[in-house]
Amino acid sequence: MRYKFEIGCILVLLAAYLFTYLEVNRFLYVAGFPILQFVMIATAWNILGGYGGYINFGTAGFLGVGSYTAVALIQWLGAGIVEQVIIAGVVAGFLGLSIGYFTLRLKGVYFAIATLALAIVLETFVNNWDFVGGAAGISFLPPRKPELLGYVFIDSKGGALFGNTKEYLFFIMAVLAVFSVWIARSIEKGKLGRGLNSIKDNEEAAECMGVPTLRLKLFATTISGSLMGMAGAVFPSFLTFIDPLTAFNLEFAVNSLAMPMIGGTFTWIGPVVGAVLLGTVQQWAIVTFSSELNLLILGVLLIFFVTVAPHGIVGWFMKKNK
């Protein structure tokens, strides 16, 4: 079937929307939201890291910039979530472009170190910016009855599209996750994806074969950064509180590279599989064991996969099928 993927996307969104109608335990949104967020972050990371072979440790930086762009917009203009997401995407994309321009001359581990430094620099900056709460963080209440063009779309008494803000943001996150998977897949199947793959395999040879390597890498950092920023933008509204420790948490950096590596970096479905699997295990571990144990699980799984199945779960299954 020709539009199998597109139909799949619509079905996933439909399922996410219907899910908000089920009278289920509220915790499922709280657990489901980060899983969707991780699908988006892992997918965004994979555009540069999986296709292009440039390991980005600065996920937390892009995510934090997205979160704090949203916070600043709420503080300044009382902006709604859609504006927050779009502008955070633009800001984080621009950050990606400029960081890319300055660091992409660095290769391998040097690039990774530069991106790690980015997250720390940005966190320090936000720690000292009182307007968005500084180091103590900031909390705010979402608008009770947000309107779009005069239509109330959240009403706890029913009759609107969503019953409460958590459901609404859960759905927004689902839309964003599907959107980023669609972007990643479009890149992978096209000329851009093949160009990025050639850079990963051998950058000099790629350049000599006519691939504009710098331009492709800048494109990848921009798109990847922009998607990470969008994923971060929804965060403050969902938590109703944000502080630099949460927004710039290095756990994001670890997760965003572990998930694609465990799922498989060479295809769009790898990060999705990795994020859903690891995200679920982590949420389960957080409520059943301890909130710290989930990092241990992640570490053990990462070591296991890097040594036993370097092409991830998807690679493992594809080999079996051959």
Binding site: N197, D201, A206
Partner: peptide, 11 residues
């Protein structure tokens, strides 16, 4: 071409 062949090995 390169002295030591540099194929795109993932392809």
């Amino acid at each position: 071409t390169f002295q030591i062949p540099r194929p795109f090995h993932s392809m």
